[in-house]
């Protein structure tokens, strides 16, 4: 895709995503039926689950492109990594704030050492480190390499973190968290909203990702011009 193509595709997808977001809000406020066991608070899932999915997708893309950047040294891969990581932070924050809001109703406590919650929190901090490393190097090339290393170590550690938080003795206790709007027990209309929301969040992410990518390309251009001007 050319620069223009990326930008217009991004704009189109982002607009589609934003309109879709309005639809999801309308559906989950006025259309979908209320969960019999959990009541209204279950509706938080229609944004929480898609945000979680998008967050993991984004961080996954960031780690993958980081690894490929170290290997191939193509600037575009690093740009994709930083743009995806930024999206991951945005959707991760949504996930980390909406989750406890639901938990406060369902578990009667905002914070619970629930494995997935901790996993996301640590991921969030790993990518906080990613941005701090990037931002605090004199030489941007060095920052890119450092950040990629942080992302890769994080990605390699995630399976182990996942295993250990699940395995930590405290979590052998039964927990009400498994009540998720997934699986065959989910009513048809709830499933419809959830799937719509998943599609919308994913579209929105890719749209904004492309726009952010276009921005990063322009930045590189500005930097190249500055270099040419001083040389």
């Amino acid at each position: 895709m050319t620069g223009k193509g990326i930008r217009s595709t991004g704009t189109a997808l982002a607009l589609l995503g934003l309109v879709g977001m309005l639809l999801v809000y309308w559906l989950s406020f006025f259309w979908v039926s209320t969960d019999r066991l959990q009541g209204v608070s279950q509706r938080i899932f229609y944004i929480h689950v898609p945000a979680a999915w998008t967050c993991f997708l984004a961080f996954g893309i960031a780690a993958l492109t980081s690894g490929m950047y170290l290997w191939l040294r193509d600037e575009r891969l690093d740009r994709a990594a930083v743009c995806a990581a930024e999206g991951g932070m945005v959707f991760g924050t949504i996930m980390l704030t909406t989750g406890p809001l639901w938990g406060a109703i369902a578990w009667n406590t905002y914070w619970n050492w629930e494995p997935r919650l901790i996993l996301t929190l640590l991921l969030w901090f790993i990518f906080l480190g990613y941005f701090m490393v990037r931002g605090s190097t004199e030489n941007p090339e060095k920052g890119k390499r450092f950040a990629a290393v942080v992302a890769i170590v994080g990605a390699l550690d995630i399976p182990l973190i996942h295993l250990s938080v699940i395995w930590f003795p405290q979590f052998l206790h039964p927990q009400p968290v498994v009540v998720k709007p997934e699986g065959p027990t989910l009513d048809g209309d709830m499933l419809t909203v959830l799937l719509t929301s998943l599609a919308v969040f994913t579209t929105l992410f890719f749209g904004l990702f492309l726009l952010r990518y276009a921005l990063e390309t322009l930045r590189a251009e500005v930097r190249a011009r500055e270099r040419a001007a001083t040389a």
């Binding site: 640590l122 991921l123 901090f125 790993i126 490393v133 550690d157 973190i161 250990s164 938080v165």
Partner: peptide, 16 residues
């Protein structure tokens, strides 16, 4: 910067 980078990935070591 070191603890910010290191602590999130140390969790498996601490748990085990």
């Amino acid at each position: 910067l070191l603890p910010i980078l290191l602590f999130p990935v140390l969790l498996p070591m601490i748990v085990a």
